[in-house]
Simulated scan of single mutants.
Amino acid sequence: MLKPDTFALTAVLAFLTALGPLSTDMYLPSLPMIAAALQATSAEVQLTLSTFLLGFAVGQFFYGPVSDRVGRKPVLLFGLGLFILASFACALAPSIETLIGARFLQALGASGPIVLGRAIVRDLYDGARAGKELSRMGTIMGVVPALAPVLGGVLGVAFGWRASFVLTIVCGLMLAAIVILRLPETIRTRSTTPISLPAMLRGFAELLKHRGYRVYVGLAMLTYGGLFAFISGSSFVLQGVYGLSELAFAFSFAFVVIGYILGTALAQRLVGRRGLDGTVKLGAICLAAGGGLMLALVGFGVPSSLAVSAPMAIYGIGVGLTMPQAMAAAMMPFPDRAGAASSLLGICQMTFAALLGIGLGRFLDIGSALPLPIAIAGTGLAALTLFATTGRVRG
């Protein structure tokens, strides 16, 4: 069995939480190809991303509270099973409407592993150690969004856009086998709260009464919102406005992910000395700096795609520094409700990102790159402002 404080357990949890990024990033280079093949508009294809985020939010509503009651492992296996079946539907989708619906179901499944991966970390670790573990997971998980667009681009050119979904099926099956054979149950004390919608809502309301929890959830929302704006809009901007090929876009996207990996690696070194808040502060500065620089470069008409990808790498460093620590800080006061705290955090985070992505999608067909840096700069500056104005609440 996998044991705490081992690389093997960290790697398994990292790849479980990477199912979401894998399901989005790998098919990004093929979005224009999907639009052509299914005779869809850019906004309709972008809905396959935003609908995925909405499905993520809906799924996270249930996984955490249910796992607090019945255990992490059986709920995790249910999520993986749903993910695998929905990935089959995505691979076989005959129309954009079918693909949008299948992506929603795929997200319902993929949301389980990410909620339960965070909850398992809270089951096993406390405080800064939990933040360090989430950062370690982020470093490993960062390999997925770094390689996924490149792999997706190669698969798209060689076999068509459906090949990316076939590979997600294989990954889901492999992870399910590892969970069945090697992952132990980690929950220490099972919740006695009944599994019902009113009980879940009451539990979420109790969590939201904690002012510090609200702040850290807000930081996670804004941080991921800017990242998702780039995920959902970058293929249209970098390929449509700057003229990059599918593979050139994939490598440009991977360059951005390197920033995220660097941020998580820095967080592992800094969180022990500076604490959760000290690390988040540096991350929020990077978020604002990256977003602001991108807006300035695009606004002044710099013709290179580096005007988008280079500042986004700085934003990526901010994501790696901010998000794992904000998540750990949000869940820290609730050791007996780690699943519910993780669920509500995910609901808020994904709903905000999905709504931001839908709004951004309405402006992607105007032939300008400017809507993308406006969204990213807005979230970065808002995150820094939130952190700077809530010192007493966090303290």
Results as ranks from 00 to 15, higher is better:
Gly318Gln: 02
Ala310Pro: 08
Phe352Thr: 11
Phe7His: 13
Ala163Cys: 09
Met323His: 11
Gln39Ile: 13
Ser67His: 06
Thr41Arg: 05
Ala340Gly: 09
Val45Ala: 15
Thr385Trp: 11
Ala89Lys: 14
Arg392Lys: 10
Tyr260Val: 10
Tyr213His: 02
Pro373Asp: 13
Thr17Leu: 06
Ser235Val: 13
Leu355Lys: 00
Thr223Met: 01
Ile347Asn: 10
Glu97Met: 13
Pro145Gly: 13
Ala176Arg: 15
Ile195Ala: 05
Phe249Ser: 08
Val302Met: 12
Thr193Arg: 15
Pro371Cys: 02
Leu293Gln: 13
Ala93Ile: 01
Leu276Phe: 03
Ala8Trp: 14
Ala329Asn: 03
Ala353Phe: 00
Leu151Cys: 12
Met141Pro: 08
Leu293Met: 14
Leu85Gln: 04
Met200Arg: 11
Phe253Glu: 13
Met137Ala: 03
Gly203His: 01
Ile100Gly: 09
Gly112Cys: 13
Gly291Tyr: 01
Ala310Ile: 05
Thr189Asp: 12
Ser309Val: 10
Phe255Gln: 07
Val166Asp: 12
Leu247Ala: 06
Val70Arg: 14
Phe204Gln: 09
Pro335Lys: 07
Ile314Tyr: 03
Gln325Trp: 03
Ala382Thr: 05
Leu201Arg: 06
Leu82Lys: 05
Met332Asp: 15
Cys348Ala: 12
Gly301Ile: 01
Val75Phe: 03
Thr351Arg: 00
Gly391Arg: 00
Tyr260Asn: 09
Ala40Leu: 08
Gln46Ala: 15
Val154Cys: 02
Phe300Thr: 15
Lys132Pro: 06
Phe300Ile: 14
Leu151Asp: 05
Phe52Asn: 07
Ile140Asn: 02
Ala119Gln: 05
Gly290Gln: 02
Thr48Asp: 09
Gly320Ile: 05
Phe7Tyr: 13
Ala130Leu: 01
Phe253Pro: 05
Lys132Val: 11
Arg69Trp: 12
Ser23Arg: 02
Ala8Glu: 11
Met137Cys: 04
Pro74Ala: 09
Val58Met: 12
Ala199Asn: 02
Arg202Cys: 00
Gly138Ile: 04
Pro74Lys: 03
Ala265Leu: 14
Pro324Met: 03
Gly357Asn: 10
Pro74Ser: 02
Ile178Val: 15
Glu206Gly: 13
Arg394Pro: 07
Val70Ile: 15
Thr389Glu: 00
Gly112Asn: 10
Gly320Arg: 06
Ile114Trp: 08
Ser67Lys: 08
Leu134Gln: 05
Val215Ile: 00
Val66Cys: 08
Ile317Cys: 03
Val215Lys: 04
Glu246Cys: 06
Gly117Ser: 11
